[in-house]
């Protein structure tokens, strides 16, 4: 009887210690998970910010200014545009039937 009690006592103590360990681990892991999640959120907003920045660098105002000043380009007009039809009928009438 006495021996059994001793064994049970040891078992209880061991299980209790194990529980403490597991609880600690679970909290540690949860903290890590939470950190990873907030990092993901941070990266998402960072991505959004960079998208906006990219867009800000490509606004019509900036593109036009650079094209005109740096690349010395000019506005396209119908006078300097060749229009190409793409329907089968168009292609046929010009004798370039595939």
């Amino acid at each position: 009887m006495m021996r059994l009690n001793l064994v049970l006592l040891l078992a209880v103590v061991a299980s209790a210690l194990y529980l403490v360990g597991v609880q600690y681990d679970s909290r540690r892991l949860f903290t890590e998970l939470d950190k990873a999640r907030s990092e993901a959120r941070r990266l998402e907003t960072e991505y959004e910010r960079l998208q906006v920045e990219k867009r800000a660098q490509a606004t019509p105002a900036r593109v036009e200014r650079l094209a005109k000043d740096k690349l010395l380009m000019r506005q396209a007009t119908p006078g300097i545009t060749t229009y190409v039809g793409y329907t089968a009928l168009d292609a046929a009438s010009k004798g370039v039937d595939p």
Binding site: A76, T77, P78, G79, I80, T81, T82, Y83
Partner: peptide
Amino acid sequence: RMLGVQPDMAVRPQV
């Protein structure tokens, strides 16, 4: 031009 509408009048081509 940006809507991709073709010109409906003859233009003296400058190409």
